[in-house]
Every structure is written in structure tokens, then in C-alpha cells.
Design a protein around this nucleic acid. Structure first.
Lengths: 295, 295
DNA sequence: CATAGGCATACCGAAATCGTATGGGTTGAC
DNA sequence: GTCAACCCATACGATTTCGGTATGCCTATG
């Protein structure tokens, strides 16, 4: 059965006349008459009373009309919805973010997105360093706000900012009295580290920093997240080298100090599947750049 | 836009593959591929990700799928509903009835109809003698349960029973002491009459009865309904000659007596538009015959 | 490097659709 | 009573669309 026919049927039912309906449909009357009879043949029952003054729905016709109208509307709405999604006027964007960035970025990013892409459902997912790649690849998130960027042939990266590494320590630590900590002072102190480089690229940046300054810090503990790291630092387990923005989520009693002779930083990037042609991605990127620029 | 295409689209989306969908649709793969691309051209955006392992909906595709599925279901449901109505499995039947018959017929008729045509909405309308014809002709009622039948070229009649005329009087009337009242005893007594024959054919049957027995009864009052007639009879305004079934709706203090030498009766009939091909009418007729037979 | 799986393209025959011309029936006016 | 007007139905030829077969391209796999 054809949507075409249903459309004709609705037109005839509304015009209560084949001729009038044909005129409104900008077609000749006979083919319309034929289509109506074909529909009746398909249903197996007359849908109209043929009077001398035009056509009048039978009860079967009324039953069909009620559904046919809705079906037509739904179909039209469907293609319109598809167009709207394709154009980025509606839809859903699922944003994966590293939790360290939450406090620094989300409070400004979310309102920015709502202003920039109203009508789009936002879905924020807290991603660990180890799952962000997989979640992008299986499309369960549309974009990821990463620190640092993901490198993968299927994944496109846009660097939107960077964060200096800082030293996190308890406020009662002797180093806390310094305005900035020389790298040399880290020698031999215990380090609260994030997962090893193969699971979290941030660690390799930290390792590179230490290696370049020929500092060796024994690893006191490995933890999964920046927040866990700060908890252990507060407990006196060791020091941590973390991106500056982690400060915003730090518990009371933790202080951050710049590293005096190290300007190393870690990239903040937006990452997405290369083949994802969602029109929302450029818009998201723009918002994210704007927000991160003001960090 | 074509419902055909939407059906193909849904099939491909569900099978996540053009080939599989083509198989399930019992058609070749290439034309299906073409149809999908035509739909995408119509929408103006890709609906599928083409991977090496098959097809995967884009977000625009998902937006369309949600509506398309419903639209298809509605359309299918619509033609099924039309068939059901045409076959009398569903629908609505609007039954006009003369109020005199209500007490005698409806309590049995309604359950009978519910058993015979479940799924059909019943709609009972109390019709006066003067409107029943118009309500049938403009299709605002499907069938009418009449006493007596309607005569009109557009209206089909099925006689399903008859009611004897009886004399209605107050129980303190001297005639009430008789088991049956001879016609001669009515001579000169005041009559509470229904509307004149041109508005209510029942009156003409009563008039014929009196004329044949050469009885003259002055008309004390004309009333619209049998129930009004009984009220006036109770008030001592006069006697009424009414169908036997009116007894069931009679107020306390009214008695009915047969007319001794008059076997006159008034037909009970089911009437409907000749051009109404509702399959519910034969079923209704059968129920009505069954119920009236037991009066 | 060869094979297999999957979608896209090209071309042809078949089917459905549309438009024009025309018929049949009823309504209403002169 | 006749005739014109109106409206739907049917017939037929022309065009468009659709489906099938053959084939090509790409990628993943062994």
C-alpha cells in the first residue's frame, strides 16, 4: 500500500469531492478517481458514498481517515526530523569528558551549548582515560573533551588549549611555603601517579617532564583518577604532578604550586570520529574553544 | 514521498544491511540500494553509515526511523480498521428507538447486541416520531426501531413484531373493573391522543380502529409522547389507546385493558437507509427479531 | 595475492501513473 | 420536457518509475 494513495484519499475525504481534490492536488480528476477505487479494492470495501453532489465517507472510510491523517503527519514529521537532525537544529550530542575538566569547563560550557544549539539534547558522560577511545569508536559518545588528545587513525583531534602542570601537595608540606617549586626539590620524593602511559597518556607527559630534569620520584601509589590522587596527597602519601585545572576540584588542605623551571603543559582537545558527519561537532568545537580560551 | 520507500528504509534499518533486507523483502539488492539512496536524496542527508560490515543508522536516520515505524504501523492499522468496520467486527452503530419501546426492548436488546457484535460501539438515541425519518436520512442514526414502520423510498423496513392496542385508564375508572373493554363502551369518552397522523402514524392506526367501530371519542388533549399521554390519563383527562408495551413504562395508578372486539395492532419495525451497506444492520436486525419475538 | 562479502552503478523490461477524451447519471433551469 | 451543467467512471496512449540482471569497486581476511 502506498502513502501516495493515502494522501489522495485524505485529500478527497477533506474536499468531499474527487474533482475539488484533484484541483487542489494539481492533477486531473480521472486518475484520482482511479486511485481512490484502487484503494477501495485494496481495502475490500467502499470508502465513500457516491452521491450526485460529491463523495461522502462511509464508516470504513472514516476509520481509515483517522489513521491515515496521522500516518501522513508522522511520515512528514519523520523526514522533517531527519532534516533537522542533519542540519543540527535538533538531535542529541553525547559529550564524553575527563572528570578533571568538569569543574573548570562544564559550568561555562553547558550554558554556552544551550545558547548555541537549542533544541539539541545534551548528554554528558564522565569518561575515564581508558574508555574514552572505545566510547568514541563505538559511537556511544559523539565527541570527547580530552586531556590529553587521543591519537587514533579513526579519530580527529582539535587542540583547544593546554594546562600547565603544577605540583599538588598538602598545605602543611614544607614546599608549600615556596611561591613556585624548583624541579630539583622533587628529587627522591614519593609520587602519587596516574595509570601508566599505555592506559593514560597524561602519565607519559609527567614521565617525560621528570626524565628531562633527571628527577627520579619513586611511585608511592598508582590511582585511576586525579581526584583519587589528590586524596592520597592529602593523606600524606606523596606529591602529585597534575594539570592546573585540577585545583578547582581539590579538597581543602591541598595546595597547588607552579613548577619553577618547567613550562610543560598538557593539551586539552576535542576528539571525534573522523566519519561522524554530525553538524553538531563544529558547533560544539566552537563553544569549547570559546570556553577553554578563558581558562 | 512514498510509503513504499519508508517501508524499505525501515527494513534496511532493522536488518542493518541492504542485502539482508532485500532478502526479507523478497527482492534483489540493487533496487533496494537505489531506493535508499533516493530517500536520502529526498531528505537531503545520509541516513546510514556505510561500513564494510553493512549499514548503520546515522542520527538523522534514527530520527526518521522512530517516526517511520509508527507511520507504517498507523497506515497498516488504518486499512485494517477500515476492513474491520466494513466487516462489522468494529465500528459504531447508532440506534434510534421510540421511547415507548425502551422498557420492553432495550434491557434485552443491549446485552444481545454486545454478545453478537462485540467491539462495536453502541449509541442509543431516543427519537420522537417526527424526527426519526430525518435522522435516518441524514445518517445521524444507522437504524431506527420504530412503531410503526417508516414509509419512504429511501428507507428499507423490516417488520419484526407487533403490539396490540390496549386501553389505558386510571385504576379508579369504572372500566377498570372489566377484564376487557368492549369497543362500544368508548363511545363519547374523552381521548388523550398522540400527534395527528401526519406527524405520528400511530395516530392514524388508532383513528382507523375507532372509525371502523364507528366510535367517536372527542380529543381531550394532544400530547407528544406516550408517557405524556399516560400522565394525562392518570390526571383524569381521558383515556388513551396505546400499544401494549407502553404498560411497562406506565406510572402507578394506570391500568391497561385489552379491547374486547378489536385485534388491531401496530407494527414494530427496524428501518434503515436503503443505501447504507453497513454490515451491522443485518446483525442488528437479527438481535432485534430475537428480542421482540419474546415480548 | 586471491577470495569473499557488501554496497553502488548501468542498463533493460515491466508496471504503475498521469493526462486527454469520452460516457453515463442526476440536478436544476427555461 | 428538454437542455445545460455538474460530477464521477472508463478507455487508451504516453511517460515515469520501479524492479531484475550483470557488473564494478572497496575492504577485510586468510
Amino acid at each position: 500500500m502506498d502513502l501516495h494513495r493515502l494522501r489522495y484519499f485524505v485529500a478527497v475525504a477533506e474536499a468531499r469531492s474527487v474533482g475539488k481534490a484533484a484541483e487542489r492536488l494539481r492533477m486531473a480528476q480521472p486518475p484520482l478517481s482511479v486511485q481512490i477505487r484502487k484503494l477501495e479494492a485494496e481495502v475490500g470495501a467502499p470508502l465513500f458514498h457516491r452521491g450526485t453532489r460529491g463523495m461522502d465517507l462511509t464508516e470504513a472510510g472514516q476509520a481509515l481517515l483517522a489513521r491515515a491523517g496521522e500516518a501522513l503527519a508522522l511520515a512528514a514529521d519523520g523526514i522533517e526530523a531527519a532534516r533537522a537532525v542533519a542540519a543540527g537544529r535538533r538531535g542529541r550530542i553525547s559529550v564524553g569528558y575527563m572528570f578533571v575538566l568538569a569543574n573548570a569547563v562544564l559550568p561555562r560550557l553547558i550554558p554556552e551549548l544551550r545558547r548555541s544549539i537549542p533544541g539539541v539534547d545534551l548528554d554528558f558522560v564522565d569518561l575515564s582515560a581508558s574508555t574514552r577511545e572505545a566510547r568514541l569508536l563505538d559511537r556511544s559518545v559523539t565527541v570527547a573533551l580530552c586531556m590529553p588528545a587521543i591519537h587514533h587513525p579513526e579519530i580527529q583531534v582539535a587542540r583547544i588549549g593546554a594546562q600547565r602542570f603544577m605540583l599538588a601537595m598538602p598545605n602543611r608540606s614544607p614546599l608549600a611555603r615556596l611561591g613556585a617549586v624548583p624541579m630539583a626539590r622533587l628529587q627522591g620524593r614519593p609520587l602519587v601517579a596516574l595509570p601508566p602511559p599505555e592506559r593514560d597518556p597524561a602519565s607519559s607527559a609527567v614521565a617525560a617532564l621528570l626524565r628531562r630534569h633527571q628527577i627520579v620520584m619513586p611511585i608511592a601509589s598508582r590511582v585511576e583518577t586525579v581526584h583519587s590522587a589528590m586524596s592520597l596527597v592529602l593523606a600524606g602519601e606523596g606529591l602529585a604532578i597534575l594539570p592546573a585545572c585540577a585545583k578547582l576540584g581539590a579538597p581543602r588542605g591541598i595546595v597547588f604550586r607552579p613548577l619553577l623551571d618547567a613550562a610543560d603543559s598538557i593539551d586539552i582537545a576535542v576528539c571525534w570520529r573522523r566519519d561522524s558527519q554530525s553538524p553538531l561537532i563544529p558547533k560544539f568545537l566552537k563553544c569549547a574553544e570559546k570556553v577553554v580560551a578563558r581558562l
